[in-house]
Design a protein around this nucleic acid. Sequence first.
DNA 1: CGCGGGTTTGATGATGCTCAAGCCCGGTGG
DNA 2: CCACCGGGCTTGAGCATCATCAAACCCGCG
Lengths: 193, 193
Amino acid sequence: MYEVLAKSIREKVFLNEDEMQLCASFFTPKKLRKKQYLLQEGDVCRYTAFVEKGALRSYHVDKKDQEHLIQFAFEGWWIADSYSFLTEEPSAYNIDALEDAELLLLTLPAQEELLLKVPKMERYFRILLQKSLIAMQRRVVSSLSYTAEEKYIKLMEAYPNISQRVAQQQIASYLGITPETLSRIRKQLASGK
Amino acid sequence: MYEVLAKSIREKVFLNEDEMQLCASFFTPKKLRKKQYLLQEGDVCRYTAFVEKGALRSYHVDKKDQEHLIQFAFEGWWIADSYSFLTEEPSAYNIDALEDAELLLLTLPAQEELLLKVPKMERYFRILLQKSLIAMQRRVVSSLSYTAEEKYIKLMEAYPNISQRVAQQQIASYLGITPETLSRIRKQLASGK
DNA sequence: CGCGGGTTTGATGATGCTCAAGCCCGGTGG
DNA sequence: CCACCGGGCTTGAGCATCATCAAACCCGCG
């Protein structure tokens, strides 16, 4: 149950067996069925979730009831609404499962205690956040600089197998375009190239 | 010269005078004139910069020579291309001064040594990154969910005095719209409401 | 076999872009 | 002190991209 997490940690910091055990003890395992919520708009985000297996998404629903996908999370990724998690304000986002999933949950008090008892984990989280920030920044640049078609091509280059795992509407929502537009772009690319 | 930095640190972790001194010793002060580059596309980003005074911006230039503003940085903010900084790959972005500025620069080796000698700074940087990530995430949601007008209003609510400090074209570029469109939006808002 | 979610296709329209011109204002030099 | 210059902002006309709405289609599953 903790293999993926242990691997993720060991890639970034060195922990001995005891520390790793201790670390693991702060997490709560949880299984989620496809379509099940981990977080609903209006609730406080009580966990950051590490994905051992499966796939989740976080998204925002605007006033016209349109969903806008903020993030995918597959095996080895983290997902949460950090703002709500840290401030304990109600979240404006939703998180749910795109596939049946196995998670490891960390509450805010558990994280705080973990960081006290295993200070090396500060480093783990710092490095993690650094990578997330770089990815988010890329996404901002992408949304500012490229056309819908270019954004789609870049996404496919970065995550070639994503289309096997998530529906096209999810990808469209992630790219900030409608499913119809994505469908036309794909047709375009498939034919004339 | 280090007041703003010291304040930023003390807001997040407790350092005694010695630690603070030691910390400061890893930074190199630098002044930048308006329009001067800190980083140019193609160069490796050798510093993360802390802004003691003035204002900078990071931006990307697309193949049609259009600038897209990634981030503003005023007093108390950090700026860099983290990807290039960490990987030592050439950067795809530019950073320059919007106003005369005073910076404190941290190289990658200096940062590593700092973190070894003052491990509490892991926590400082973690918290910092957490906040940056939340801000970036908001920006993604904003770019996906709102119209140009809504994005502009939200920006003005979040940073009411930004328009006193940076030209409208910079704001337009940050919002992902043309200066013409921003001008029309402002006219709209000023008149009819 | 038929239902339902996801994808495709078509017709129409809105939002924001492009290009081009004019304007405002502060700074500089004659 | 005034004329000129240049950068930034505004305005207008035409246009491209992508959204909307509606219908048909595809296919896996009960």
